[in-house]
Design a protein around this nucleic acid. Structure first.
Lengths: 329, 329
DNA sequence: TTGAAAGCGCTAACAA
DNA sequence: TTGTTAGCGCTTTCAA
């Protein structure tokens, strides 16, 4: 509970000298440094970040905005962010927005009010106008989900290309009737993945059938089940399903098995994201892996660069198609 | 980017008056207030939390320590904490310790250094000595997992009683050979749940068999699978399994089904925690529900009371046994 | 190498 | 009802 004054007094030096010791400046005589360090130990002194932040106008805290902490998709990205942030002497604050603007605003305020230095936004439902306005005066990076014309730097993968490759894989193993389980196209990734789906079909002159393109309200397990129920009701059933998220695909697997439809023999399934759980299902799930950790690390590095006033560019990283049991009997 | 000075100048009043408006004090004339509010709007002013916190020596930020954000167990508790915290004008900072002391210390430091006002610890692996030392000078509450003799207030359920009821349920539906899939007893809950298991068996004069008590290193899906593999190797196999965590129980379900063991006919299974996923399995899982949200809300309320210097007592909340398909054909 | 002093943005005690 | 002013704990410029 001591402050810098008391330490200075105890050590018989000025507060400036104590500050120099704290900040590891070299212009301090060896024995002065020792005196100060002893005083710090004796008084159990911890420098206040508030005083320091107020003075230096940087808090060294980063905000990470995610819609739901329960979404396993974000895990590795967050790990990446955290690693990189700690390396640079920053702490991260995990902010669950629950996709609610009120929540979002609380966290934006934390930055406006100087309690945090910048934001990595991973919320696809974020209010992009608010974000753009924030970005005028504050450091912001978008990670995974982004908006192209916002001028806000982002780190992401090429969703269209990834979806294209996933669907092409299905075509190459002999499928022609391929369903797409997508979500609301207001999300850029949904839009892009659909484009990839379409361009793969086009390339092989496979007609696009509207009834094979389904939309779910959310990306949950139940939504995947529901989608399969609808697919199984079709007269002319597809032989493969590409779901834009692993949770959807896993719901699909469960519903297919409940209905006695064998995967992959009767129906092949591809997911997206390579969440941990995608390897625990029966059969295991073919899916698209994004370089999560790397994405997080880069996002954090870029944010910190931005905070320091550097010019920052967007990045598009490579993905990888992980072929497992759900497409290879 | 404006500060309180500039607002005062713009409004033609003193900084004190601006501060009064900001803090909604009533001793401000209506038209003065209006002048100030206009100036705030014009300058796009946001009061700095750093200045305020430094002055009031409170940051209104709470730290929530959890080992893994991927563990669904914590979800609702966090929701509860968050709700209650926001109601009281506090923000929460989610801290993933990964059960590593270095990580823990970073977050403890944040409190020592005044960047946060208190801690809710939910990490069973937390270094209890460090925590006790911290608690001497700082506000700390333990939630769910706790240490009895630390003097640190906690919010939890009666684990022994809950386990007792789960096992008694198995006995009541006719089981005598009941296995316990436990984890390291250095965790208080593991110790207590085993006690409950034993006392239920004792009450019905069922002998305790060492070979029916298994320990897993962690609480993951694979650990549950592994445990079942061991159980299925026993000569005299049990007819029921009580796992101290849903993830273990879900792993057990999967492994049993892979081995053609029907649940609940050949083997009944009970879990613990009622995570969302426990309702998505086939069959759905009988489990013990803790009042998660409530636990979180109470923990936050108590922490805030503690921060305000009030005396705070520990609480033990009620649990509930949720009977589903895995114990009722 | 060290110290004195100003000031980051705010609140609150005291005075008017 | 409003203003003046000290000071929260720190960093940093300037001077010695």
């Amino acid at each position: 509970m001591a402050n810098i004054q008391q330490v200075a007094m105890q050590a018989g030096v000025s507060v400036a000298t104590v500050s120099r010791v704290l900040n590891k400046q070299k212009s301090v005589a060896a024995n002065t440094r020792i005196k100060v360090e002893e005083a710090i130990k004796q008084l159990n002194y911890e420098p206040s970040l508030l005083g320091r932040s107020l003075r230096t106008s940087e808090s060294r805290i980063l905000l990470v905005l995610i819609p739901k902490i329960s979404n396993p998709f974000y895990l590795d990205i967050i790990q990446g962010i955290e690693t990189s942030a700690l390396d640079h002497g920053y702490n991260i604050l995990l902010c669950e927005t629950d996709s609610k603007p009120e929540r979002e605003n609380i966290y934006f305020d934390l930055v406006k009010k100087k309690m945090a230095d910048g934001i990595i936004s991973m919320d696809p439902t974020v209010n992009i106008d608010t974000l753009i306005k924030m970005a005028e005066n504050h450091a912001i990076i978008q990670c995974s989900e982004y908006s192209n014309d916002s001028g806000i730097p982002y780190v992401t993968i090429d969703n269209e290309q990834a979806a294209y490759r996933a669907v092409k894989h299905l075509i190459m193993i002999g499928h022609q009737k391929i369903a797409l389980v997508n979500t609301d196209e207001k999300f850029l990734y949904a839009n892009q993945r659909k484009k990839g789906y379409i361009s793969a079909l086009n390339e092989y002159n496979i007609p696009i059938r509207d009834e094979y393109i389904l939309y779910t309200r959310e990306l949950g397990f139940e939504n995947g089940q529901q989608a399969i129920r609808n697919i199984l009701r079709l007269e002319n059933q597809p032989t493969a399903v590409f779901a834009v998220s692993d949770m959807l695909a896993i719901g699909a697997l469960k519903e297919l098995s409940s209905n006695g439809v064998h995967v992959p023999n009767d129906m092949a399934v591809v997911g997206f994201d390579k969440i941990d759980f995608s390897n625990m299902t029966n059969p295991t799930l073919t899916t698209v892996a994004q370089p999560m950790r790397e994405m997080g690390e880069i996002a954090a590095t870029k944010l910190i660069a931005k905070i320091k006033g550097e010019k920052v560019e967007s990045v598009i990283l490579n993905h990888e198609l992980v072929i497992r049991e759900s497409t290879s009997g």
